[in-house]
């Protein structure tokens, strides 16, 4: 599903080139649950962003379902990203001005889904996450765990093939975190490919494969 070949990401300043990622080779198959770990500054988020097509590598090749992303035009890439990838953030990143319902609905709007279909899709999602009663609340009226649930629901509404989660439990209490991780596990068992970044070994345990990054390079890659 994902094939990274010799990916570099660097920042050029006046006198030196700083590498964030260097020589990353990585393959992820459909249905995997991958955890990326590593100390701060190891390049975890950058790698995530490149996989999520939010950022471009400075060098190297990236194939998504065998399509060469690195050779694609911005619009095509944005299209691909819109239809196949869902994001979950540490800080939830819900839109404050929108209700739960509207937050979940937003990706569908950008995909151009018809109103009637949108309604049923959102309703289904609310039902699945047991948030029907909260659909008209604004993010600030929810707890952190609930907000992240909305975040996950929003990521899933577009029926992505790949779910990217950047420290999804970083702002949550342990029990809330556990709830989210169990959800991920369930999604994975239903066939969703998941890549998550985390500092927590406990969270990594939910996955099937752990990649350790250090100074922009893959240090270990274990399947378990």
């Amino acid at each position: 599903m994902i094939k990274l070949k010799d990916i570099d990401k660097y920042i050029d300043s006046k006198y030196q080139r700083t590498f964030i990622l260097k020589g990353i080779d990585l393959e992820i198959e459909q249905g995997e649950f991958v955890t990326i770990m590593g100390p701060s500054g190891a390049g975890k988020s950058t790698l995530m962003n490149i996989i999520g097509m939010l950022d471009e590598p400075s060098q190297g090749e990236y194939y998504f379902f065998d399509e060469p992303i690195h050779r694609m035009k911005e619009r095509k890439r944005s299209d691909l990203h819109k239809h196949h990838i869902g994001f979950v953030f540490q800080a939830y990143h819900l839109i404050d001005e929108l209700t739960v319902y509207e937050n979940i609905e937003t990706p569908l709007l950008y995909k151009g889904v018809k109103s009637a279909e949108r309604k049923s899709l959102v309703a289904e999602m609310l039902d699945r996450f047991q948030m029907v009663a909260k659909k008209d609340l604004f993010p600030e009226q929810l707890s952190g765990g609930q907000q992240q649930l909305v975040g996950v629901a929003r990521a899933l509404i577009g029926q992505p093939k790949l779910l990217l989660a950047d420290e999804p439990t970083g702002n949550l209490h342990t029990d809330q975190a556990e709830e989210i991780m169990k959800l991920f596990q369930k999604l994975n068992s239903e066939g969703m490919t998941i890549v998550q970044v985390t500092h927590s070994k406990a969270n990594a345990a939910y996955g099937k494969r752990t990649i350790n990054l250090l100074d922009g390079a893959v240090e270990t890659d274990d399947r378990h």
Binding site: L54, S78, K82, F87, H93, L94, I95, T106, Y110
Partner: peptide, 16 residues
């Protein structure tokens, strides 16, 4: 800015 960022991640293009 954040809102813009989120919307872009959710699939919004510049025109929208």
């Amino acid at each position: 800015a954040q809102e813009v960022g989120i919307r872009k991640v959710l699939g919004a293009v510049k025109n929208q």
